[in-house]
Each structure stands twice: as structure tokens, then as C-alpha cells.
């Protein structure tokens, strides 16, 4: 039973402003992820790890190959999906914790976290309650909840992003260096959250540079350098 099946996926950037320079990123990327499995993408910076996550999330186009999401009665190839199918998939199947929080002006941290639940149809009051509980677990002080996260520290913003990605409990979770700017205590909280999500059957694809975190969460480690396209 595979939730995510990536076959021969490849990506090349064409930089029109640099005279049509073609910048190959990855090619022939193939791996599968089962429910409850955590696949860690490894390799040096610039080898294309984040690009692969973005292709799975759909914010980068998948130039070649297939990225098939299979969950319940939904089976979608992200390489060929219409924008509305990708949006529907994000609502139903894919959670994503990006490296940096894209802060919306004026929106309170707790609402940033609650927003995906609200668009799932959960009432705003319940969504905020659950968002608050999650923020507390990540040691974000309640006095910060009603402030927009733009002025927060890097570690605080990262935890807001983690809460927003984890709370809606999608069957696939993409994590781009979720513990990079966290102190040891908060890193352990996030590791516990990842373990809990794995036991609940979530398929996880993660980029982690911290060896300790990686050893704790990874079932499979894939070296992305093998897919790095020759320039």
C-alpha cells in the first residue's frame, strides 16, 4: 500500500533572463512512501532536496515523470494535475512545513495556525482552541498568540509553521528542515510529534540535517545526490 509513488521525476529550470540558460536540478527521482513511514531525503545543499518537496506539494512544476498520490478513492498524478485538483489534494491529503513562514500582515499567530482547519470546515472557535493547544505544546507563550508572527524570532516562526502544518492531520506530511532553528527542548517536542504522526499512519517525507533527529525519525534515508542532474 503506497500513499506516494514517485517515478522518474525530473526538473530543469530554464532561466529566460539569463539567455535561456538551462539549469537541470534532478532527474530520475524514484521512491515510494507507505503510511506510517518516514523517508528522509539526504545530500548536500543544492542537490535538489527542497525542489523535490516542492514538486510533491505542487509549488514547483514536475517537468518529467510522475508523482502519484494515492489515498482513499483519490489517485492523482501531480505532474499532470489541474490547479484545482492540486488545491483539493492540499486540502485533503498533503501537509507542508516549509523552511520559512510566509507571514501574512495583521493575521494573528493563532489564526495562521487555525486557518487550514477553518477551511476544512471546523468552526473558527474550535479551530482556535485546537490551535492554541498545539501552540502551547510547542512552548509558544499565550501572550504571543494574538500577535502577527512577522516580528517573532526565527525559532518562534518555525514553530508557528510546524503547528500550521501538523494540526490538520493530512495523510502525507512534507517537512523541510523543521528543526533547523529550534533549541534542544523544542527539537525534542517536534521529534515526538513526528513519532506520534507516524504511529497514526501519516506518510512523511522530510529534509533534516541534524543527525540525531534523522536517526530518530527515519525509516528510509534516500541520498538525493544520486538523482542530481548533470549540468
Amino acid at each position: 500500500m503506497t500513499v506516494l509513488d514517485i517515478r522518474n521525476a525530473g526538473k530543469t529550470f530554464t532561466m529566460h533572463l539569463q539567455g535561456g540558460l538551462r539549469l537541470p536540478v534532478v532527474q530520475g527521482v524514484s521512491f515510494r512512501v507507505m503510511p506510517g513511514e518516514c523517508v528522509v531525503l539526504a545530500g548536500p545543499s543544492g542537490c535538489g532536496k527542497s525542489s523535490i518537496l516542492k514538486m510533491i506539494y505542487g509549488s514547483y512544476r514536475c517537468g518529467e515523470g510522475h508523482i502519484v498520490v494515492d489515498h482513499g478513492d483519490v489517485r492523482v498524478d501531480l505532474a499532470r494535475a489541474e490547479p484545482r485538483e492540486i488545491l483539493a489534494l492540499r486540502r485533503s491529503a498533503i501537509g507542508y512545513v516549509s523552511q520559512f513562514l510566509r507571514a501574512v500582515p495583521r493575521v494573528a499567530a493563532i489564526d495562521v495556525v487555525a486557518e487550514p482547519l477553518v477551511s476544512d470546515g471546523v468552526s473558527r472557535s474550535e479551530a482556535r482552541e485546537r490551535a492554541g493547544a498545539f501552540l502551547a505544546r510547542l512552548n509558544i507563550a499565550p501572550r504571543l498568540w494574538d500577535l502577527p508572527p512577522a516580528t517573532f524570532s526565527g525559532g518562534e516562526q518555525q514553530r508557528i509553521n510546524i503547528a500550521r502544518g501538523f494540526l490538520p492531520e493530512r495523510p502525507i506530511l512534507l517537512l523541510d528542515e523543521p528543526t533547523a532553528s529550534l533549541d534542544a527542548a523544542n527539537r525534542n517536542v517536534v521529534v515526538d510529534l513526528i513519532h506520534a504522526r507516524k504511529s497514526a499512519g501519516t506518510a512523511i517525507v522530510a529534509i533534516v540535517h541534524d543527525d540525531e533527529v534523522r536517526d530518530s525519525i527515519a525509516d528510509t534515508v534516500i541520498d538525493i545526490a544520486q538523482f542530481t542532474a548533470a549540468a
Binding site: 530554464t14 529566460h16 516542492k54 505542487g58 509549488s59 514547483y60 512544476r61 490547479p83 488545491l87
Partner: peptide, 21 residues
Amino acid sequence: TGLTDQVLDDPQEPYTQLLVA
């Protein structure tokens, strides 16, 4: 044309790349 974050993060056409840049 496409998904907003896809067009803005991974623009394909020369003109779109110019706009984003």
C-alpha cells in the same frame, strides 16, 4: 496560467520570470 504559488515560485515564461524577478 496555473496555481498561484507555482506561477510565482516556478514561472515558466520569459515575461513571467521578468515580472517575478
